[in-house]
Design a protein around this nucleic acid. Structure first.
Length: 909
RNA sequence: GGGCGAAUAGCUCAGCUGGUAGAGCACCGCCCUUACAAGGCGGGGGUCACAGGUUCGAGCCCUGUUUCGCCCACCA
């Protein structure tokens, strides 16, 4: 994998090396996981992107964060597995292909099921790989040899096994229930696949005449067209306005049917008239009320949400003829017109309310009575139920959710969970492995005692050709499973379950799941339930929930708004590394990311900085290729190594705690502010000097520091660091991705060097400050005189005289100044007074102003601290260490103030 | 109707267990100094939304208020 570098001469151009590295990484065995190998397991399964898509910015964030963790752990020497793959995304993909067909005026029905599925597979093969290619371009270090697809052979077998086992355990059942139905997709949906969008609707007040002719009751509804399906009207049992009516009957307009007035506490006395129409087949509340009162369920709609009235429901043939086949909203208009004509429309009010919409096509969903398959997930309070176990696992900390605030959402949802409708009337997906015996019909064993599905069902992993009970013919269930059913199994099916594989033994439970909160319920919760049931163990130890990426204005990105930031064009324009670094640096826990291209551009400058710094270092390191092993490093060398050691420790800690932004910021800060701004500048006097031994030492340090820095930064910017790393001298045989991550090293930590350098840097900063504040030219060389209040600092200054004079642009440096230097600018650092004699350079008034400003700050600060210290409460109650610190600080400030004042007096004199 | 989160410099945001308010960009001044003008050096700028409370001490903890944002929910 040694890659002969091109030229570093030019500027940083990520496009010139990123794609090559992406190819090389993907081609090799670099990221292949070996369950037999040594090392602590660290495993992640990718949240499988839909085959419908291209990489969007959310994927870029999600996979960048995973890759940061994966590369970090791999470099730490862990045994790492990152499983890539794709999701078949049943309803979404079917919709895409149907739309394509529609463009050619073809329907899936005209093609037939098998031919249609062939088309979907074909489409999957063509475009399904795009996102994988894009992930590679982003730098994702997955084990590409293990790429899985939710509908591949192995996973499909696992899905059938799971279905059959759950069915046998009584955890999957079939029943005719009121479910959410999309009249456009023509399929059932689970509760969470319905989105509730507040919209401006109307509240219609209708009059239902009393059967005895004594007037009418007023009924408020948002859905008048379901009137035909009414089985009762309900009032609250305590509502005195209506107690006399309970048990009487009203006449349902247009049908002539008499329906009872019932009492149920579900009714809110304060809403509308306090009388509610009860339509058990078209409303979830009414369904429950109907069940309590044993009311008939009259379905008045087709699957397409058109009116379909039978003679029992609406005896009047004319009425039926007028409504049958009318689309639901047309029927509403018709009904209002009819009621108005009959004098039964009291009023219409504006009324904002939430209407459920299909999460895939935004069509208003219809509560619809139909036979479906369900997973029995509750009751949540029952410890042994699927939901109960999933709740307990998080409560007991077997799985940790980060940031913790999401735990509340998880609990809240889990504790109110209802059975999961898993059948979909689609073609694309896992065919439900269940059969209906054509001959055993009407046997005992009805699934649902109340609504009754009187046909015996058989679940079988292998295709079934005859009924095992009677030998008769069987019909395969035409439906497919909810796409989330197979994703719920992802953490263990991708590892070879139902086989017992070395992968499962080594890598399950996975170490970490990185995902967005939008699929916490769709996916995470279901994986918890299925993992616990089938593996007797949680599917992941940690769940890191990241934020949503928004545009610079904080708007959710959407195609219709046109504010989508396309990660691929960002990579094209700025490079994958800057994009990755931006996303990582902005990934603060619990906060959405407002992304703008300018930010990425900013981090490209950072990459460029490191690129150029490397150019500088190599130019010198290569010149010294014949160096022998240097003697002990100089203080500046020890200092930068010590600082780097601190940075490594901080970055590691941040990553261990999933504080991605802190980790990125710390690496950035070290590289730019310590390595580039200081160390490289400090190295110049040595490298351009003529002390060969010192040069050799500095070259060795440069090599070591850059080597370690690339390792440190590699998880964030893999391409740049890999490229630069191979430019370093020596044999860099493998890939940086397999090199060791910097670990805190007591040998590098060097407090005396840090303290010594602080003295030197303080003097340089003081001189620079005087220069800048007095508007002296940066080129002007100054005479500087130092007075040592703490003589022990003299030695370090003396031995770094060259650094000081170069970086401070000092003409002459006098270490023997007295306490007072007339007509000089003055700065006070720890233990040292810094004087710059004016010698006609400095405007005395300007310098007086500068000193006054400085003194003002110091005095104000000293005043604050001194107030604190004269407060007996503080002295008595604050911890000793805090008091001591404040005392020291006050002394320091007072000393500094006195010195500055002295400087002022000297100038004024 | 519940729940969660946010409010800190002109802008975008950090600020981990309460102990000297930070960064990037923008701004001002001086510099094309032999890695980098995608740069260097120096500098200005904040009643930490508001009102109370706890504490020796609050951006951080508690209560309330305001303004945004999100999630969940079957008020017809």
């Amino acid at each position: 994998m040694q890659r002969k570098l091109g030229d570093l001469a030019g500027a940083y151009e990520p496009g010139s090396f990123e794609p090559q590295w992406a190819d090389e990484w993907a081609a090799g065995d670099l990221f292949r996981a070996d369950p037999e190998a040594q090392g602590e397991p660290f495993s992640i399964v990718i949240p499988p992107p839909n085959v419908t898509g291209v990489l969007h910015i959310g994927h870029a964030l999600n996979n960048t964060l995973q890759d940061v963790m994966v590369r970090y752990h791999r470099m730490r020497g862990d045994n790492v597995l990152w499983v890539p793959g794709m999701d078949h995304a049943g309803i979404a993909t079917q919709n895409v292909v149907e739309r394509q067909l529609a463009a050619g005026n073809v329907t899936k029905e005209s093609l037939g099921r098998d031919a249609f599925l062939e088309r979907v597979w074909q489409w999957k093969e063509e475009s399904g790989g795009a996102i994988i290619r894009q992930l590679k371009r982003l730098g994702a270090s997955c084990d590409w040899s293990r790429e899985r697809f939710t509908m591949d052979e192995g996973l499909s077998r696992a899905v059938r096994r799971v279905f059959v086992e759950l069915y046998r355990d009584g955890l999957i059942y079939r029943g005719t229930r009121l479910i959410n139905w999309c009249p456009r997709c023509l399929t059932a949906l689970s509760d969470i696949e319905v989105e509730h969008e507040d919209s401006a609707g109307k509240l219609y007040h209708l009059r239902y005449p009393l059967a005895n002719g004594e007037g009418a009751v007023s009924v408020a509804t948002t859905r008048p067209e379901t009137l035909f399906g009414d089985s009762a009207v309900a009032v609250h049992p305590d509502d005195e306005r209506y107690t006399r009516l309970i048990g009487r009957e009203v006449v349902l307009p247009l049908t002539g049917r008499s329906i009872p007035v019932i009492a149920d506490t579900y009714v809110d006395m304060n809403f509308g008239s306090g009388v509610v129409k009860i339509t058990p087949a078209h409303d979830f509340n009414d369904y429950d009320v109907g069940a309590r009162h044993n009311l008939a369920r009259r379905n008045v709609l087709t699957a397409e949400a058109r009116m379909a009235l039978d003679a029992a429901t609406v005896p009047d043939a004319d009425v039926r003829a007028r409504y049958d086949g009318l689309e639901r909203y047309a029927a509403r208009q018709q009904l209002i017109a009819d009621l108005e004509a009959a004098g039964l429309l009291e009023k219409i009010e504006d009324h904002a309310h939430a209407v459920g919409q299909c999460y895939r096509c935004k069509t208003n969903v219809e509560p619809f009575l139909s036979p479906q398959w369900f997973v029995k997930v509750g009751p949540p309070e029952e410890a042994g139920s699927l939901a109960g176990r999933a709740i307990r696992a998080v409560r007991e900390g077997q799985t940790r959710i980060v940031p913790e605030q999401w735990k509340n959402s998880y609990y809240a949802w889990m504790e109110n969970i209802k059975d999961w409708c898993i059948s979909r009337q689609l073609w694309w997906g896992h065919r439900i492995p269940a059969y209906r015996c054509v001959d055993c019909n009407r046997q005992a064993g009805s699934d649902d005692p109340q609504t009754g599905d009187p046909e015996r069902r058989l679940a079988s992993e292998a295709p079934l050709s005859a009924c095992p009970y009677c030998g008769g013919g069987v019909a395969e269930d035409p439906d497919v499973l909810d796409t989330w059913f197979s994703s719920a199994l992802w953490p263990f099916t991708t590892m070879g379950w139902p086989g017992s594989t070395p992968e499962l033994a080594k890598y399950y439970p996975t170490s970490l799941l990185v995902t967005g909160f939008d699929i916490l319920f769709f996916w995470v919760a279901r994986m918890m339930m299925m993992g616990l049931h089938f593996q007797k163990e949680v599917p992941f130890r940690d769940v890191y929930i990241h934020a949503l990426v928004r545009d610079a204005e904080g708007q959710k990105m959407s195609k219709s708004k046109g504010n989508v930031i396309d990660p691929l064009s960002m990579i094209e324009k700025y490079g994958a590394d800057p994009l990755r670094f931006t996303l990582t640096a902005m990934a603060a826990q619990g906060r959405d990311i407002k992304l703008s291209p300018e930010r990425i551009e900013g981090y490209k400058a950072f990459a460029n900085k490191l690129w150029n710094a490397t150019k500088f270092a190599l130019q010198h390191v290569q010149a010294g290729s014949g160096d022998t092993a240097p003697a002990g490093p100089a203080v500046a060398d020890r200092w930068i190594l010590s600082r780097l050691d601190r940075a490594a420790e901080d970055v590691r800690r941040a990553l261990d705690e999933y504080r991605f932004n802190d980790a990125a910021a710390r690496a950035y800060q070290f590289i730019w502010n310590e390595l580039c701004d200081w160390y490289l500048e400090l190295s110049k006097p040595v490298l351009y000097g003529d002390d060969e031994a010192a040069k050799a030492r500095t070259r060795a340090t440069l090599t070591e520091v850059f080597d370690t820095t690339y390792r440190l930064l590699h998880p964030f910017m893999p391409f740049l660091t890999e490229e630069l790393w191979h430019h370093l001298p020596g044999d860099r045989g493998g890939s940086l991705a397999r090199a060791a991550y910097p670990a805190p090293d007591a040998g590098r930590r060097d407090a005396p060097a840090e303290e010594a350098m602080e003295t030197v840097l303080d003097i340089i900063k003081a001189v620079r400050n005087i220069r800048g504040e007095n508007n002296l030219s940066p080129g002007a060389r100054l005479d500087v005189r130092l007075h040592f209040r703490q003589p022990e600092r003299r030695a370090v200054v003396e031995s770094n005289r060259k650094l000081l004079t170069d970086l401070g642009r000092i003409e002459s440096l006098d270490l023997d100044a007295g306490e007072v230097v007339p007509k000089a600018a003055k700065a006070v650092t720890a233990g040292i007074d810094v004087f710059v004699p004016l010698a006609g350079l400095i405007d005395i008034d300007e310098e007086i102003k500068r000193l006054e400003k400085e003194l003002g700050k110091v005095a104000a600060e000293a005043e604050k601290v001194s107030r604190k210290l004269t407060n007996p409460e503080f002295i008595n109650k604050a911890p000793e260490a805090v008091v001591a610190k404040e005392k020291a600080r006050l002394q320091e400030l007072e000393e500094k103030g006195a010195r500055l004042r002295q400087g002022l007096e000297t100038l004024r004199a």
